[in-house]
Amino acid sequence: MEWQDDALLLGTRPHGESSVIATVFARERGVHAGVIRGGQSRKMAPVLQPGSQVAVTWRARLEDHIGSFTAEPLRSRAAAVMGGRLALTGAGAVMGLLQYALPEREPHPALYDQTLPLLDLLGQDDIWPLAYLGWEKALLAELGYGLELGKCAVTGQREGLIYVSPKTGRAVSAEGAGDWAGRLLPLPPCLKGEGAAPDAEIALGLETTGYFLRHKVASEQVGKPLPDARERLVALIRKRAA
């Protein structure tokens, strides 16, 4: 068995004294693991940092074997990522969520194509949180929990949408919410792709996407809590907003 693909490196674990087991998010193959021989060497260690874009070739005798990768660097993001606290925490959240939420060996090329520009924006702290919020929305959609924020689920109106139903993920207007308003999730304009998106609003948006990640993805699909890295990112954005 052999295939080649472009991939994002999600992380590595030491394997023996000189090799690593790398987990990558390959465009056409999804999240996939494999051994990289010599991955702990001084030459390879800088290439094999989370967030790096690599051209991988995977080889194994049988499809269900872990197999081995050879990796050629395409783009290193280590310097941009290590440049600041938000970039580091953000990269950790993206890598952590991809590895956490996506089933192994299931292709998600659309999500891959949306993740690359997000990582390219790392280091631009003024616009990155909003891009990340959009990416979480895309991740939810990819996992089958897409939010429908175009019109009110109760009245059908397209104006005055300020809530999201935790049950259906559909937008609800103030009028449609009625007495149920206290049980609905916030829908800040930035979650609909509107407005200036200050950090406080982005934190509200992440509260809503976080609800679906926790109550749908974590409890129904994965069965374990969300990665700490995401919680740290949300805390950091809240702190910036304060």
Binding site: P50, G51, G92
Partner: peptide, 15 residues
């Protein structure tokens, strides 16, 4: 260490 994990930890502690 000058790795993503090492620097993430450094920034967390600094915070």
């Amino acid at each position: 260490n000058a790795t993503i994990d090492g620097q993430t930890t450094a920034h967390y502690i600094a915070d």
